[in-house]
Each structure stands twice: as structure tokens, then as C-alpha cells.
Amino acid sequence: MIPSPRLRCPRRQHMTPPMVEFVPETVLKRDLFSETRKGHFAGAPHAAVIRRVVTAAPFWSRPIGWVLARREIAVLRAIRGMRGVPQLHSVDSDGLYRSWTDGTPLHLARPAHPAWYRDAHRLLREFRRRGVTHNDLAKPQNWLMTPDGLAALIDFQLASRHRRKGWLFRLMAYEDFRHLLKQQRAFAPDFMTPTGRRVLARRSLPSRIWMATGKKLYNLVTRGFFRWSDGEGTHDRIDREGPGIIARLRSLPGVSDVALAPFPLPSKGVGIYAFVETAEPTALAKTDGADLVQPVAALPRRADGTPRADILQLIAMNQMTELDALVEGDPALAATAHAVAAGRLNFSDRRISRMEVG
């Protein structure tokens, strides 16, 4: 059982700190509206907790940050007890605490079994029963495949709780369902049904209007003025810079494959860790773009030959305990993964300084 601080409303004044101390380990994300830290409660070091700190944002953007945080809090309360979603632990005057969701983002996991998609549909049906819509399921980063092969969802800052299931709720629930079908079409088209294809072909009128008008303005403001990408987690920089880094590394002599993973840079945001399968590691000294470049004799791979992004992510984050659990039962995979881990370059990101927590 995870010890949990008291639930408190962020609107109340003179709030006391949580009853149980939060021990931060690393900063996962920083943007203009909050800072997201991963750690644990004192006395429960093996149960990861996420701390979203709204007061870490600039003072002029905090009102928007609190709007987003309150949306997330309301929805997490509504879906309490559901499998495959974060669980809200507590709320205080600085932000909120919620459970960590273990899993691989959809665009990296690329689930090729119908069980994952059935479970994802189960999530949306349960949302509908509870009057909740996610509203941000077009991004594959918000979908996870858990270690047991099931579906999970994260990033509820844009989600909505509907007390009345009127036309707006039905419209937004329909869009959630349609975005799941888009993910299925992208990663497992063989599982698409004729009904699913018909739904994808019928985008709602408000959605068409949004894409033609509001979405363009939203992108202009967030990505242009604020220099902020709305992707959850730390994969945004890889999406933006990754193709160029991979192309440069693959052009070097002796390089057979490249895999990238994000990792937090304390006080500096998100770094890119490049794992380079190469017979000539000395050639890597001539590259730039990635923050860390590690030559490896062999990348850990799945049965279909694709690199194990989940294993490489743990190595990039220096999470050796989790790595051991992930490769347990597969001696060949464990040997390859541990060989890569033995040469890892990141040893300093697991903890953030007390001054930074401040």
C-alpha cells in the first residue's frame, strides 16, 4: 500500500504540506505551465509517483497552468479505480501527485496483437460510462502499452468531465473513439474492420472546423510564440530532431543501426541519447546533435528485428533495477542489454538537487 498525502483542493488557502514526504528522483518534463517530476513517497521507494508542480512555472503563465491542472484533477477523481489510467494521490497548493504509469509509448511499442486494441476500446467505453473524454488521443505518446501488453492512457490536462451526457459529450467521445481507430490504422491496419474504416472517413463538422481554423492558431501560439510542443513526456525533441541525427549517424562508416531515447537533463530540459550499433566506434567522435552517443556491438532487439526501445529507454535513464526485471527469463536478451548497460554514459540524471526542488 502506497502512503498518500491528504487530498486537498488547490483553491483553498493556507494549505499544509503533504503528510508524507515526496522524494524526487528526476525531472521528466518542463514547460511554461508546470514541471513534472518522478520520485516516490518516503517509506515506499519502489512505488513510483509523479509530481506535477504548477508553481514551478513562470508567474505569468501559472493561471493557465492551474486551469490545466484542475481539469486533470477533476478527471482523475472521476476515473479513480480504473485500470490503465493514473491514480490521483493528492492535491496541494503547488500542484498534484499521481501514480506513475509504466509502459512504452504507442509509436515505439507498435502493438501487433489485437488484445491491446480490445483493451484500448475497453478504456474508452469505461470513460463514456463515467462521463469523461480525453480530448487528446491523436498523439500516440498519450497511449502506452504496459509490460503485460495492455493499454494505458496518460496526460489528462485537456480531458473533460461531463456531468450531462449531451450532444457535446457525445461528439467529444466520438472523436476519442475515432482517434483510437487512427492509431490502429497506423500501427495495426490488418485489424481494421469495415465499420472502423467508415468511422475514420466521417470526421465530425466541429472537428473539420477546428482543423481548418483553431488548430492552426493553436500551433502558431504554442509552437511559435511559446516554443512549446504539446506532446506528453519527453519524446517531442526526438520527433523534431531525431530524423536528422539518425541520418548523420547512419552515414558514418561501420554504422549498421541507430536507436534514440530521451533522458532528462537537470535544469536544462530533455536530452537525446543515441545508441549506435557500429564496428568503428572512433568515427562517432565526428558527430553532433545528440547529447550522448554510445557505440554498442549489438542493440537489444525484438523477434522481428526492431530495437527494443523500452530497454534502451531504461538504460538511457540509468534505471538498472527496472532493466533487470524487463529482461528476466531471456538469457540472450539479458546478455545483450547488460552489455549495453555496462557502457552507459548517463549516471547523473536519477537524482535532482535539493536546491532544484526548493
Score class of each variant (00 low, 15 high):
residue 69 A to I: 00
residue 213 T to G: 06
residue 357 V to D: 05
residue 186 A to C: 02
residue 204 S to Y: 12
residue 286 K to I: 13
residue 244 G to V: 15
residue 13 Q to C: 15
residue 274 A to K: 10
residue 227 R to D: 09
residue 314 L to F: 00
residue 110 R to T: 14
residue 163 R to H: 15
residue 126 E to M: 10
residue 353 S to D: 10
residue 328 E to C: 04
residue 10 P to Y: 00
residue 5 P to F: 00
residue 183 Q to I: 15
residue 338 H to A: 06
residue 113 H to L: 15
residue 38 K to S: 04
residue 313 Q to H: 04
residue 236 D to I: 01
residue 278 T to V: 14
residue 309 A to R: 00
residue 49 V to H: 08
residue 237 R to P: 02
residue 156 F to L: 13
residue 305 G to F: 14
residue 276 V to R: 03
residue 276 V to T: 07
residue 228 W to E: 02
residue 68 L to V: 07
residue 313 Q to A: 01
residue 44 A to L: 02
residue 117 Y to R: 06
residue 234 T to V: 14
residue 301 R to Q: 03
residue 139 K to Y: 10
residue 337 A to S: 06
residue 51 R to M: 05
residue 23 V to W: 09
residue 212 A to C: 10
residue 285 A to M: 12
residue 56 A to G: 13
residue 178 R to W: 10
residue 219 N to K: 08
residue 287 T to R: 08
residue 256 S to D: 07
residue 239 D to S: 06
residue 61 S to C: 09
residue 156 F to A: 11
residue 48 A to M: 09
residue 197 R to C: 12
residue 126 E to C: 10
residue 229 S to C: 04
residue 149 G to D: 13
residue 172 M to W: 08
residue 192 M to F: 12
residue 312 L to Y: 02
residue 95 G to S: 05
residue 252 L to D: 13
residue 176 D to M: 08
residue 319 Q to A: 14
residue 348 S to H: 04
residue 312 L to E: 02
residue 104 T to Q: 08
residue 48 A to W: 11
residue 260 L to E: 06
residue 206 P to W: 09
residue 298 A to T: 06
residue 304 D to S: 15
residue 128 R to K: 15
